[in-house]
Design a protein around this nucleic acid. Structure first.
Length: 732
RNA sequence: GCCGUCGUAGCUCAGUGGUAGAGCGACGCUCUCGUAAAGCGUAGGUCGUGGGUUCAAAUCCCACCGACGGCUCCA
């Protein structure tokens, strides 16, 4: 018997029953065979070691593509196999290792372990050495399939409880399950894998981290070992040096070096203090956007930093986002105690009768002047109601978690006519969120942030146009600062979830509008179910940071719900009240995150229009100080952010310092320049441009500044060449 | 919040139980300089905080605080 095989170039050949993809490769060349990582048969990735005959369907030829070490899918398969090898090594070195999952990631792989004694980075050399040994053993990855009951028996016999649980719950619909064996190591796995462990030549363990079984925080804590692998050592080395390079762009590092901002635990975690240079950068961005907004018919508003809890109960924020808000501020000292009591009563501890610390809490509350009706003998529900009544008549405030309720109230401050719409309220509004401490990250995730927020109130007919305009604005803003590498995500609700407010009809309408705008604009985007805001779907602009993590910057959100909750109205041409639609939008997202991403994007080397210090005047020696001061004055009068380097020292030293400070332009002045009213211009990028009249130099800079020219950005680390295909996972 | 790692001068880091160090920066003096580092000198640290072990702790142990990498979350 023979099987007919068709290669991607259309060539057909016939192979024996037992022949595998590797055999086909060997038939073409030995080199090709050595390069084969995996096979793509009839469009599916499978082990190159399986007989091709097993994939034949009738007389149709089997489509075969040999996936080699040059293909991204090959890299992903290698990395997944590396995860198995790492697991094998860990099991050889430790007793009673429980295996969880070991998938590939964009830049490597990990495996989650349930370990008796924790592993730390100091264990890496031993694990790596064992992996090397396993690679040297050139063990074959051997696949076998078992029916469910035998599969459970097998993993149960190996004391792999997590795998047993996974087969019984996560994989309940699979009639048979795939396994891979390499040497003494057997793991439940969908595959495919590389032919033998010998293909693993270049790898490195990267880090160890905590994780939870199936991502459930209450689940069993696991240890996750991250690693990466490549087909050759050169690629691994290149990747590692790029990781190092990327770390140098970290905004936290640059922010400190350049005196842009500071975060100090004595002030508070996640609370950013903008130093003069960072503040100047932010101010410049804000001024740019503010001008753009006024031109587009936005009107400035200001709202206070705290708001009544009632306001957020109306908007729906208070119950929905309780956990990520700072606790309420009370006008009454007993407030927090009453809150605590209500919380316990709501949690039902116990349902009736006295609850934990009730007497102590009540006592304390009364000492602080609590005067509500409260009977210890009452039922839990009655007690809760009594306390809630007290809460309702006592003023409570939240640190503003969002600006929209305030803007909605501003809209409501007078009757509105359809002739006034759309109304666009804009504000750089500072909001506060109690992010979990482990989430905080420099400027990218903070507890106090300023949104470049605005809310557009419009008629349903105007929605599509307004939304499109807003999307265009976000694009314009991102492109003005040279952030062209972003991803657009359409965040939709998760079907069947109770995380959202509002009717299905409104959600359907909102989601349909967003899709329609996107289609008309021709923008590329991906849909993400479950990522919507609780009040409506949104369009998010995702940008990557220096080390490849994605962050959401700009966002445009469509909202039919808050207008309802706030009973917003306008009088239509029919002289009847109608409900407006709200569009929430923030092109930068937050000033903190935006500036953080911008710092990494430019590696601190901002274009002229954004640079906190645009020009530095360098006198040749103290003798030229007087003229240097004249030049400085002229620059300042021309509107430039300029300084004057007064320190002693050689010109070379001053230039070096200015270069390292990433100042776009240096004006060198000595006796020759002073005599002619000139300056010797030095460009940060192109170096010495020679002497020119001061007026000409200023005109040149003004042109570059006003055009917001971006002449060069530092080479950004591009991990793409190192990324494996992400949809090639070996895990079930 | 959870898991792990880490915390020494303004910054980068060395110092593994026995008198706290280097480079850069800062400050002072000399030099008055032509496109990426002039020379000399001085100051600066209760080694994150608190407790414990020890004759003796930056070093070993415990707790707390904070940072970092993940997880979970993210209006």
């Amino acid at each position: 018997m023979t099987v007919s095989v068709r290669l991607p170039d259309g060539k057909q050949l016939s192979v024996g029953d037992a022949d595998t993809a590797l055999d086909v490769a060997r038939g073409i060349s030995e080199g090709l065979m050595r390069a084969v990582a995996v096979a793509e048969v009839n469009g599916k990735l499978v082990d190159a070691t399986l007989p091709l005959a097993s994939f034949a369907q009738g007389d149709e030829p089997v489509d075969l593509r040999l996936v080699t070490d040059r293909d991204p899918e090959g890299l992903a398969v290698l990395r997944h196999s590396a995860a198995h090898i790492m697991a094998q090594a860990v099991m050889r070195l430790h007793e009673g290792v429980g295996l969880a999952f070991g998938p590939t990631t964009a830049t490597g792989f990990y495996y989650d372990f349930d370990l008796k004694e924790p592993i730390s980075e100091s264990d890496f050399p031993a694990i790596e050495a064992e992996m090397k040994k396993i690679a040297g053993e050139k063990l074959t990855f051997e696949r076998f399939d078992l029916p469910r009951d035998e599969a459970v028996e097998l993993v149960g016999g190996m004391n792999q409880e997590l795998k047993v649980e996974h087969i019984q719950t996560g994989l309940a619909e699979h009639p048979t399950l795939g396994f891979y064996r390499q040497g003494e190591f057997v793991d439940l796995c969908r595959g495919p894998h590389i032919p033998t462990t010998g293909k693993l030549k270049a790898f490195k363990l990267m880090s160890v981290a905590g994780a939870h079984w199936k991502g459930d925080q209450s689940g069993r804590p696991l240890q996750r070992l991250y690693g990466t692998a490549f087909f050759d050592k050169k690629a691994l080395k290149a990747y590692l040096s790029q990781v190092e390079e990327a770390k140098k762009r970290d905004h936290r590092r640059i922010g400190q070096k350049m005196d842009l901002f500071t975060i100090n635990p004595e002030v508070g975690q996640g609370l950013v203090m903008w130093l003069p240079k960072g503040a100047t950068l932010r101010y410049t961005l804000e001024a740019f956007l503010r001008d753009e907004l006024i031109r587009r018919g936005y009107e400035p508003v200001y709202s206070p930093h705290i708001g009544s809890v009632k306001l957020y109960e109306t908007s729906g924020h208070f119950p929905f986002y309780r956990d990520s808000q700072f606790p309420p501020l009370y006008e009454h000292l007993a407030g927090p105690i009453i809150d605590k009591m209500v919380e316990q009563l709501r949690a039902g501890v116990p349902a009736d009768g006295p609850f934990m610390q009730e007497y102590e809490l009540l006592n304390a509350a009364q000492k602080l002047g609590f005067d509500g009706d409260y009977e210890i003998g009452a039922g839990a529900d009655d007690k809760r109601k009594m306390l809630e009544e007290w809460q309702a008549k006592t003023d409570r405030f939240l640190l503003k978690p969002m600006n929209c309720p305030h803007h909605a109230m501003m809209y409501k401050s007078r009757p509105r006519s359809y002739k006034q719409l759309p109304i666009r309220f804009a504000e750089f509004g500072t909001v506060y969120r109690h992010e979990q401490s482990g989430e905080l990250n420099g400027l990218l995730r903070v507890r106090g942030l300023t949104q470049d927020d605005a809310h557009i109130f419009c008629t349903p007919e105007q929605v599509e146009h307004e939304f499109a305009e807003t999307v265009e604005l976000v694009k314009l803003v991102l492109e003005a600062v040279g952030l062209n590498d972003y991803r657009v995500e359409l965040s939709l609700r998760e079907p069947g979830s109770d995380k959202y407010i509002g009717s299905d009809e409104d959600w359907d309408a909102a989601e349909a509008t967003l899709r329609s705008v996107l289609k008309k604009s021709g923008m590329e985007y991906v849909e993400s179910p479950g990522e919507a805001a609780f009040y409506g779907p949104k369009l998010d602009f995702q940008v990557r940071d220096a080390i490849g993590r994605e962050w959401q910057l700009g966002t445009v959100q469509l909202d039919y719900n808050l207008p309802k909750r706030f009973e917003l109205e306008y009088i239509g041409s029919d002289n009847k009240p109608h409900r407006p639609v709200m569009i929430h939008r923030a092109p930068f997202g937050s000033m903190e995150r935006f500036v953080g991403v911008l710092i990494e994007h430019f590696a601190g080397a901002f274009p002229l229009w954004l640079a906190p210090e645009q020009v530095r005047v360098l006198p040749l020696s103290e003798k030229s100080n007087k003229y240097a001061k004249d030049v400085l004055k002229a620059l300042k009068e021309a509107g430039f952010r300029a300084t004057f380097d007064e320190q002693d020292g050689k010109l070379q030293a001053k230039i070096r310092e200015a270069q390292l400070d990433l100042i776009p332009y240096m004006f060198v002045v000595g006796p020759q320049e002073a005599e002619k009213g000139a300056v010797a211009v030095r460009d940060r990028i192109d170096g010495d441009l020679g002497a020119m009249p001061l007026d000409d130099a200023i005109a040149k800079l003004r042109e570059e500044n006003d055009a917001r020219t971006i002449r060069q950005i530092a080479e950004k680390t591009d991990f793409e060449g190192f990324e494996a295909a992400s949809d090639v996972g070996g895990e079930y």
